[in-house]
Design a protein around this nucleic acid. Structure first.
Lengths: 188, 188
DNA sequence: GTCTATACTCAGATAGAC
DNA sequence: GTCTATCTGAGTATAGAC
């Protein structure tokens, strides 16, 4: 395993850096989250930080990857649709993450950006997982059978992302409740 | 009028700069849209450009403001709901704008950002305009009467923004069609 | 493999001349 | 209104210590 021997320290440091990065974004926003300040928070030099992550952008992608893997593990046994709402609800408790996600998603429009492939694969993976669950829900009669499963996933994803954007501007919005209301609308 | 006398040239130059900025974003993406390159495209020095807009970020906000005013004028006589779909459809033909909007919306999470107030006011204005139209549609029987008008607007807005994010990653998505499908779902 | 010091390049912004 | 010159701070490449 990667946790053994001479690498253990490096793995721990990597995670410490990711936590420091998220903390800085949460406190000062993405714009002011410089490599210098994150490195300082994590207790090393900027060059030391880059030793682990090649570039600032790759470091931020690593945060989103870690988040997805945590969510995937945590909600592995729940049904997909309620897990989806739970993740959005949980995101409201981690403001830095939502900000980071929105910012990287925008930057990822550029095919050269390190996050471009990550977002495309993430969307594809999400759709692959969801498709079966949506079809099953349609057969079970909890989602209208006349709706295209691909459209359902695309639109639920869009609602979640769009609500998160709105929530950053106005945190009084209840993202999870609004998303649930949308999912209710899919019922027969 | 602002078009008269010694100011006419300044006004024209302002618009020329905004067009140059949008062209650069459309071609190279926001990340590579430096003040230097935009200034070069508009035929003046970086400092000359900043004379008009104070900062890079304020310049980009000015582009979004101009877009909204154009849309508002163009669709003043259409009904709100079909205009909403038309605007999204039209956005697919102006890739730089969608990219710019997504990026600024993410940055605007920071209350210090020049775009913060713009986005908050824009959302408030959109909701004010929409509310009457949605209530009227409910009375006319084209939107389910049991739905909260504020929720309808928030969610339609979220769908539009979220689909635009997805479209930047995968331009084969038909944003307007997906949005219309959502609006159909609101029907009784 | 882990990490620092240094330095390079580019960005946005500012001061002041014209 | 627009320029040149300059400032400050960003990201990061490099060389090399441990």
């Amino acid at each position: 395993m990667a946790q053994r021997g001479a690498y253990a320290k490096g793995v721990a440091k990597r995670e410490e850096i990711l936590e420091a990065a998220l903390a800085v974004v949460a406190e000062h926003g993405y714009r002011k989250a410089s490599v210098r300040e994150i490195a300082e928070t994590a207790g090393l030099s900027p060059a030391g930080l880059l030793h682990y992550f090649g570039s600032k952008e790759e470091m931020f992608v690593a945060i989103l990857e870690a988040r997805d893997q945590r969510d995937l593990r945590e909600y592995a046994e729940s049904d997909f649709i309620s897990a989806f709402v739970d993740v959005v609800r949980h995101n409201a408790a981690v403001p830095g993450l939502v900000h980071l996600y929105a910012r990287l998603a925008a930057d990822a429009a550029d095919p050269e950006h390190p996050a471009h492939d990550f977002f495309r694969q993430r969307t594809a993976q999400l759709e692959a997982i969801a498709r079966g669950e949506i079809v099953a829900a349609q057969q079970a009669g909890t989602i209208r059978a006349d709706l295209d499963p691909a459209w359902v996933m695309r639109t639920a994803h869009a609602v979640a992302d769009g609500l998160q954007s709105a929530w950053m501007l106005d945190p009084t919005i209840d993202m999870a409740a609004d998303l649930e209301q949308f999912l209710n609308l899919l019922r027969p």
